[in-house]
């Protein structure tokens, strides 16, 4: 079975490379878009209690929505293909990044912020040089969760014509061709594990030296 899958892979290398490329491109763009929206939004609301609570509640509801349901709901509105899938995946990546940005900034101890203010820092300096660096590990943990979720969600993009490695899986299941579905399922599992590992490393690397666990 594995040998057959390997044979299929080597004889359809170009097709596989395209699908793999689309998978990585759609995941990376969705994550980047979600970060560009959710991190500034999180920073903006974090120090306003009411707004922060509203944002966290909205994110919690967003987090419970089934990925496939979100992808399916986008389809009747935006149609099929890469862009609708990108929109859906971006929506799915927003909640963990938003929640963690807010939690990271709120988690900065009041005393530290007071000390910074006492040193004469402006609110902007406090944000850029105190709050954000301390919150970075938590924000990165959110990005990591979102990244794994997006790589996993991108498999489902195949159902709405988004392309990616999910195409091999859906074709394999439809034709009951096990080697074909393995060509999709094994690489995407490895991609997901690698993403988790990579972001875990970045998370440790970006933790300010004084805050690292010994």
């Amino acid at each position: 079975m594995l040998a057959e899958a390997w044979h299929y892979l080597t004889t359809h290398l170009a097709q596989f490379a395209t699908a793999f490329g689309v998978h990585v491109a759609i995941s990376a763009s969705a994550l980047a878009l979600a970060a560009l929206i959710a991190i500034p939004a999180g920073i903006a609301v974090a120090r306003r209690a009411g707004a922060a609570l509203a944002a966290i509640n909205a994110a919690n509801i967003g987090r419970t929505l089934p990925s496939l349901a979100v992808l399916a709901l986008v389809m009747p509105i935006l149609g099929t293909g890469f862009t609708p899938a990108l929109v859906a995946l971006t929506l799915l990546a927003l909640p963990p990044i938003l929640t963690n940005t807010i939690a990271g900034i709120i988690g900065v101890e009041r005393d530290i912020v007071d000390a910074a203010r006492g040193m004469g820092m402006t609110p902007r300096e406090i944000r850029d040089r105190v709050e954000l660096p301390i919150a970075t590990p938590v924000i990165f943990a959110g990005l990591r969760t979102a990244a794994v979720q997006v790589v996993s969600g991108a498999v489902l993009a195949a159902f709405i014509g988004g392309g990616g490695l999910g195409d091999f899986i859906t074709a394999g299941i439809a034709m009951m061709a096990v080697p074909l579905l393995l060509v999709g399922a094994i690489p995407v599992t490895l991609l997901s594990l690698a993403t988790d590992f990579l972001f875990g490393m970045l998370e440790r690397r970006l933790t300010p030296r004084g805050m690292r666990a010994k």
Partner: peptide, 13 residues
């Protein structure tokens, strides 16, 4: 960490 659809597919054999 295994993507949902990949997991379901891997169980088919």
């Amino acid at each position: 960490t295994i993507p949902t659809l990949a997991f379901l597919a891997l169980l088919i054999p």
